[in-house]
Computed example of a mutant assay.
Amino acid sequence: MALVLAHPAWAQQRGGPVDDDATEPVASTSIPVVQPIAPSPTRTLNAALSRLARDPRDISALLDAGGAALDLGDTDAAIGFLTRAEQVAPGTGGVRARMGIAMLRSNQPFEAIRWFDLAEQAGFNRTEMASDRGLAYDLIGDNAAAQREYQLALSAGRNDETSRRYALSLVIAGDRRGAELVLQPLLERQDRGAWR
């Protein structure tokens, strides 16, 4: 809602009241407000598909499409893009790490671990995939390996999701006190996931 102050002469021409105290018109300035548009998975996927239409072997576009499909919850599409990426650039660590995430999300933890191992062998930064690798180990019942991965992930900095996964792994392994210590910072911040 804009408040407009009119010059007395203009108000008189329009038949409105004149304020004798007003001697100068009030200048107004319009300032455009630009809100940043965060990249959405749909936009990322569409951009990647456009690049793939020009070059079906564009490894960067295949990776972007696979990542966007994962973000959209379409693991089958993600696996398809990442399989093509692996064919175009065999042995690429980033492709293999994302394939591990795709396998994890499609409830194939053994395959996920295999892909994470391949990514590590290809030189992919182990810390970057440690949280997801830890979850895969938890899903196959290897809590000790999972906890080592969570500790590695947390060594790179605080991550609430990794902390929650780590605490759950500790509880499953019977270490309730350890889980409480991991969750304490989250509980102090009233994190709902930690309370659950």
Results as ranks from 00 to 15, higher is better:
residue 92 T to C: 04
residue 70 L to A: 09
residue 158 R to G: 04
residue 103 M to P: 00
residue 96 R to D: 08
residue 171 V to I: 14
residue 71 D to I: 04
residue 110 F to D: 14
residue 18 V to A: 02
residue 42 T to M: 03
residue 61 A to W: 01
residue 15 G to P: 08
residue 190 Q to C: 04
residue 174 G to T: 06
residue 16 G to S: 07
residue 125 N to Y: 01
residue 134 G to T: 13
residue 74 D to Y: 01
residue 143 N to E: 15
residue 79 I to Y: 02
residue 57 R to Q: 13
residue 12 Q to C: 01
residue 189 R to H: 07
residue 22 A to E: 11
residue 157 G to W: 01
residue 148 R to K: 14
residue 5 L to C: 13
residue 150 Y to R: 05
residue 151 Q to N: 14
residue 67 G to T: 09
residue 59 I to Y: 00
residue 150 Y to N: 14
residue 156 A to Y: 05
residue 187 L to F: 02
residue 10 W to E: 13
residue 29 T to G: 00
residue 191 D to W: 04
residue 38 A to R: 04
residue 168 L to S: 15
residue 82 L to P: 05
residue 185 P to M: 07
residue 59 I to M: 03
residue 195 W to K: 08
residue 51 R to N: 13
residue 38 A to M: 00
residue 146 A to Y: 05
residue 26 V to C: 04
residue 101 I to N: 06
residue 97 A to F: 03
residue 191 D to I: 03
residue 140 I to Q: 07
residue 40 S to K: 01
residue 78 A to T: 05
residue 185 P to S: 04
residue 112 A to Q: 03
residue 66 G to M: 11
residue 106 S to M: 07
residue 34 V to I: 08
residue 96 R to C: 00
residue 98 R to S: 15
residue 62 L to F: 01
residue 154 L to I: 03
residue 95 V to S: 07
residue 173 A to I: 03
residue 166 Y to W: 11
residue 51 R to Y: 03
residue 84 R to K: 12
residue 119 A to W: 04
residue 62 L to N: 01
residue 98 R to P: 07
residue 36 P to G: 02
residue 98 R to L: 15
residue 2 A to Y: 13
residue 8 P to E: 13
residue 118 L to S: 10
residue 79 I to K: 11
residue 41 P to S: 05
residue 38 A to P: 00
residue 146 A to S: 12
residue 168 L to G: 15
residue 5 L to N: 10
residue 96 R to T: 08
residue 87 Q to Y: 01
residue 115 W to E: 14
residue 154 L to H: 03
residue 134 G to M: 13
residue 171 V to E: 14
residue 1 M to A: 15
residue 27 A to Q: 09
residue 95 V to F: 03
residue 48 A to T: 00
residue 118 L to A: 15
residue 45 L to V: 01
residue 41 P to L: 02
residue 88 V to W: 02
residue 71 D to F: 01
residue 53 A to P: 03
residue 68 A to N: 04
residue 119 A to D: 09
residue 78 A to R: 02
residue 100 G to T: 11
residue 15 G to E: 09
residue 42 T to S: 07
residue 64 D to L: 12
residue 64 D to A: 15
residue 145 A to L: 12
residue 7 H to A: 09
residue 144 A to E: 15
residue 180 E to D: 14
residue 87 Q to L: 12
residue 76 D to I: 11
residue 192 R to A: 15
residue 136 A to L: 08
residue 138 D to Q: 15
residue 58 D to C: 01
residue 150 Y to M: 12
